[in-house]
């Protein structure tokens, strides 16, 4: 069995524990041979499944971060226009990523979502034990020194009596060692089946929305619940202009602590950027701007006005006819 040098991008606890760190009784350890044993990735960020459960983060932490971002941009900007464009750019890069991610996530068939938690939790402990048993069989097989008759016969010629190569396990294997070896591959297979990828849960990728209404519904529902844990409060088509749509949020959570309605509305350009990035990446070029429209009890009620480019409308009429 070959040593698996490139590990899948996992960072299970067992991977981390393998590197014991500096041992003061032994002094500095030669790090090279041990290097490949260690997982190169310690951050959980890379190993996490794309379809993790809902992460809730503290609103306080988020608003502090947002506040710092805004004051940073505010410091470096000369004009209000400049400020809003920059904030919009920040949001855009998020929206672009989200359009891929959310489309991917909604492709996963709903019944299998519970299994995703086990995706990377399978322990690759098998690997360590495998090296141990390898050496064991090595010694035992060299003691017996019988020519192998098992299914590995073909490989017997290649490894010539060298005790220390990994392949020698299979060369001089007697009955028991081959049994072990088979057992080995089985466990290896078991491990592989455990680490199944997310793609196995997707029978069919969700098709990207092509109609304006569909993509806006996606923004109104899926994007909003991803960002704010609830669908947006309303989705309205403008009666005056054909290319204008409005997404309404009664209480934007991110900007709720900012005083001064003009200041607050400027900060809402961030969410506008997210929407714009999302739609643009999905092929709907548009402009998005926030407007404050208090109504009833909602003083912060914000309307995100989406103005699609003419080409989007033209495409829509060509593709789907007058709708």
């Amino acid at each position: 069995m070959e040593q698996q040098i490139i590990y899948p991008s996992t960072s299970d606890a067992s991977f981390k524990n393998r590197s014991t760190g500096y041992e003061y009784t032994m002094g500095p350890k030669p790090s090279l041979p041990d290097e490949y044993m260690r997982s190169p990735l310690t951050s959980k960020l890379y190993s996490e499944s794309l379809n993790t459960k809902k992460h809730e983060i503290s609103l306080s932490a988020m608003t502090f971060l947002f506040q710092e971002m805004i004051s940073q941009i505010h410091k470096n900007c000369q004009s209000l226009n400049d400020f809003e464009t920059k904030l919009d750019k920040y949001g855009e890069s998020i929206g672009m990523r989200l359009s891929e991610l959310l489309n991917f996530r909604s492709s996963i068939s709903p019944g299998t979502s519970s299994r995703t938690s086990t995706f990377l939790s399978s322990s690759p402990v098998v690997n360590t034990t495998s090296t141990n048993t390898n050496t064991n069989t090595n010694t035992s097989s060299s003691m017996n020194s019988q020519p192998g008759n098992g299914p590995n016969r073909s490989r017997a010629n290649t490894g010539t009596s060298s005790k220390d190569t990994a392949s020698s396990v299979s060369t001089k294997s007697n009955r028991t060692s081959t049994d072990r070896h088979i057992h080995h591959t089985q466990s290896q297979q078991a491990q592989h089946t455990q680490v199944e990828s997310l793609t196995s849960q997707i029978s069919k990728m969700r098709r990207r929305d092509l109609k304006i209404i569909d993509i806006l519904q996606f923004v109104h529902g899926t994007l909003w619940s991803y960002l704010f844990n609830h669908v947006s409060d309303d989705l309205v088509k403008s009666s005056e202009r054909n290319n204008e749509y409005m997404i309404i949020d009664n209480q934007p959570p991110l900007t709720q602590f900012i005083s001064g309605s003009n200041n607050r509305i400027s900060c809402d350009y961030f969410i506008c950027g997210v929407i714009r990035g999302f739609l643009t990446n999905a092929g709907f070029r548009c402009k998005v701007s926030p407007h404050l429209m208090p109504k009833d009890n909602w003083d912060n009620r914000t309307v995100y006005l989406i103005q699609f480019d003419n080409q989007v409308l033209e495409r829509e009429t060509i593709r789907f006819g007058q709708s």
Binding site: F66, Q67, E68, I70, I258, S259, G260
Partner: peptide, 20 residues
């Protein structure tokens, strides 16, 4: 909430937030 998380408030200065 309404003072410390306001990006336009400068520390140790008078509070002008109407929300607060």
């Amino acid at each position: 909430d309404y003072v410390m998380k306001d990006p336009f408030y400068s520390l140790e200065m008078p509070i002008k937030s109407e929300l607060f």
